[in-house]
């Protein structure tokens, strides 16, 4: 049954990208443990407004763990301590009365803070636009059942495609690498028969664009642990392989089995 919690929050406040930021401390009293983490912030914000103080900006939208908008560092972990859970699906019953919660925005050179806890993740879109697609202009498609795809392949592609683009992988990575995000998309498309025509070009351009913005993977595995969709490190290996192949392989022969 529902209990209430009294919490101390330390929240990163930063008025704008170029301004200096700092932690501010807030008391969050009488928070129902049925509230979600973001609802807890809603309550804090309502109280701040009542007191005439500027509310905390935090990223959120669908609040059902699928849009990928939300995401903050909670006590040193991306999306908090609950495995496979986005911030919006984290509930206060996972915290204890009297806890101090430190909330910080994602940090990466490619993710500048917009305000408070909100960061700009548009480099992730830059990675998609150079190769995260299958070129199939509208109207060109053949019948969907023309080409059978083994269930294992479709399932694996789906595992990779489950990525919500929240950026937790980058935030959790000590190197701010975006390997998990990029490899999830590379594998989603490269594993499918439809994606074969552009396979090596895709791996090549996505990896090289990724490296314009992000750090290098040192295989810590933090990304996968932080990922709300628990996307596997395996995809990083597959991407690495396809990338090297993209440089080595004679692509003129790439449609030969």
């Amino acid at each position: 049954m529902s209990n209430t919690l009294n919490l101390t929050l330390q929240v990163w406040r930063q008025p704008s990208t170029n301004a200096a930021g700092t932690f501010e401390t807030y008391q969050a009293h009488n928070i129902s443990d049925d509230a979600s983490f973001l609802e807890m912030l809603d309550i804090v914000n309502e109280r701040l407004i009542e007191d005439g103080k500027i509310p905390i900006e935090f990223p959120h939208d669908c609040r059902e763990g699928i849009c990928g908008t939300c995401g903050v560092m909670i006590n040193g972990r991306a999306h908090g301590h609950e495995k496979g859970t986005a911030t919006c699906q984290l509930h206060m019953r996972k915290f204890n009365d009297g806890d101090t919660i430190v909330i910080e925005p994602w940090r990466a050179a490619a993710f500048p803070v917009v305000r408070d806890l909100v960061v700009d993740r548009s480099p992730l879109d830059r990675i998609i636009e150079v190769g995260g697609f299958i070129t199939a202009p509208t109207g060109t498609a053949q019948d969907a059942n023309q080409q059978p795809i083994p269930k294992e392949v479709a399932d694996s592609a789906m595992d990779a495609a489950a990525c919500i683009g929240c950026g937790a992988c980058v935030a959790a990575c000590p190197n701010s690498a975006a390997q998990l995000f990029t490899s999830a998309k590379v594998w989603h498309l490269n594993s499918l028969p439809q994606g074969q025509a552009e396979r090596y070009k895709r791996a090549e351009s996505m990896v090289e664009t990724m490296e314009e913005f992000f750090g290098s993977c040192t295989n810590h595995g933090e990304c996968s642990e932080a990922c709300p969709k628990e996307i596997s490190l395996d995809f990083i290996a597959y991407m690495n392989k396809d990338y090297i192949k993209s440089k080595v392989k004679n692509r003129r022969m790439s449609s030969q089995i």
């Binding site: 330390q10 930021g21 932690f23 006590n75 972990r77 430190v102 910080e104 701010s176 933090e222 996968s224």
Partner: peptide, 16 residues
């Protein structure tokens, strides 16, 4: 990686 990364101001809690 040093260029790409921005250090957190709070303590990190690593898992993996």
């Amino acid at each position: 990686n040093q260029v790409s990364n921005v250090a957190y101001s709070s303590k990190r809690d690593f898992i993996a």
